[in-house]
Computed example of a mutant assay.
Amino acid sequence: MKEELDYSRGAKPLYAQLYDILLSRLKAGEYKKNDVLPTEAEFEERFGVSRITARRALAELAAKGLVKRQAGIGTMVISTSEKQDIKARIRLVDGQQLRPISRNNLTLELLTPPEEVARAFGLDGETKIQRLIRTIFRENEHPAQINYIWLTPRLGPLTLEVFEESLYGMLEQHNENIDSYQDIITAELPTAADCEILPINPAEPVLVKTRRGYNDRGELVEFGVSKHLASCYQYIVENSR
């Protein structure tokens, strides 16, 4: 019998739901050390997910030191408890966190990227790529964050409408799902363009997160620059399992 995942708007990505299911089964002892997990094809049949989704969930387990791929055998359980890890996140705060986060996709343009972005994608100085601009805010509030997201030319021409549901869902459909990323956190003064969108004056610093997201082939998929109102966010580092 096929097991159901949550496809509703706002639900976790499918790979994350599958990861949670597998992790709970490891902790419950359903899968034990040296057991071989189902194949990607079997996950496709059981959960109705793509093999790419199954592969990413298994990659997350491998990154936690729980499983490893062995040629000719498959994905073997090597531990049933997660390794200690350092986690960092930027959280939008508003008291008790009761109001949902909304995203507003503003523009999608084909532009010549800045030198740093072009170099990251391995482009020459004249190649244009697509840049998405969107804001993030809570209900009945001004935008608290603006994202400038440069996307790989491998995606081909896109429309603003494809981003209405989920950026990462769209990337997964194009076989460009994010498998790993690097974040760099800095503080900078906003540009004139930032000030036009965010309720901020030019002398007030913003928290800037620059993200490079890579697919499971090690290719750059997105180069994103997120600018956060410092008064609205917390940067949290946790040492946990």
Rank of each mutant, 00 (worst) to 15 (best):
residue 126 E to W: 08
residue 126 E to M: 08
residue 126 E to N: 14
residue 126 E to T: 13
residue 126 E to D: 10
residue 127 T to D: 05
residue 127 T to Y: 02
residue 128 K to I: 13
residue 128 K to H: 00
residue 130 Q to T: 09
residue 130 Q to F: 09
residue 131 R to V: 05
residue 131 R to L: 12
residue 132 L to R: 10
residue 132 L to D: 05
residue 132 L to S: 03
residue 133 I to N: 03
residue 134 R to H: 12
residue 134 R to S: 12
residue 134 R to D: 00
residue 135 T to V: 09
residue 135 T to A: 06
residue 135 T to R: 04
residue 136 I to V: 13
residue 136 I to N: 03
residue 137 F to S: 11
residue 137 F to C: 01
residue 138 R to L: 13
residue 138 R to M: 13
residue 138 R to Y: 05
residue 139 E to V: 02
residue 140 N to K: 14
residue 140 N to I: 00
residue 140 N to Q: 13
residue 141 E to F: 04
residue 141 E to P: 04
residue 142 H to K: 14
residue 142 H to F: 14
residue 142 H to V: 01
residue 143 P to C: 10
residue 144 A to V: 13
residue 145 Q to F: 06
residue 145 Q to D: 13
residue 146 I to Y: 02
residue 148 Y to I: 11
residue 149 I to T: 15
residue 150 W to T: 04
residue 150 W to F: 15
residue 150 W to E: 03
residue 150 W to A: 00
residue 151 L to I: 15
residue 151 L to N: 08
residue 151 L to T: 03
residue 151 L to W: 01
residue 151 L to Y: 07
residue 152 T to C: 07
residue 152 T to Y: 06
residue 152 T to W: 01
residue 152 T to P: 00
residue 153 P to Y: 10
residue 153 P to F: 09
residue 154 R to Q: 14
residue 154 R to E: 03
residue 155 L to Y: 07
residue 155 L to W: 06
residue 155 L to I: 11
residue 156 G to P: 12
residue 156 G to E: 04
residue 156 G to L: 10
residue 156 G to V: 08
residue 157 P to I: 06
residue 157 P to E: 12
residue 157 P to A: 09
residue 157 P to M: 01
residue 157 P to S: 10
residue 158 L to S: 13
residue 158 L to R: 13
residue 158 L to V: 06
residue 158 L to K: 08
residue 159 T to K: 11
residue 159 T to E: 13
residue 160 L to R: 13
residue 160 L to G: 01
residue 160 L to H: 08
residue 161 E to K: 15
residue 161 E to A: 13
residue 161 E to R: 12
residue 162 V to M: 06
residue 163 F to E: 00
residue 163 F to M: 12
residue 163 F to D: 02
residue 164 E to G: 09
residue 164 E to F: 13
residue 165 E to D: 15
residue 165 E to S: 13
residue 165 E to N: 11
residue 166 S to C: 09
residue 167 L to N: 01
residue 167 L to Y: 03
residue 167 L to E: 06
residue 167 L to H: 00
residue 167 L to R: 00
residue 168 Y to V: 09
residue 168 Y to T: 06
residue 169 G to T: 05
residue 169 G to V: 01
residue 170 M to V: 09
residue 170 M to Y: 12
residue 170 M to L: 15
residue 171 L to W: 06
residue 171 L to D: 03
residue 171 L to M: 04
residue 172 E to K: 05
residue 173 Q to D: 05
residue 173 Q to P: 03
residue 174 H to R: 14
residue 174 H to N: 02
residue 174 H to D: 05
residue 174 H to Y: 12
residue 175 N to G: 08
residue 175 N to V: 00
residue 175 N to A: 12
residue 175 N to K: 11
residue 176 E to K: 14
residue 176 E to L: 15
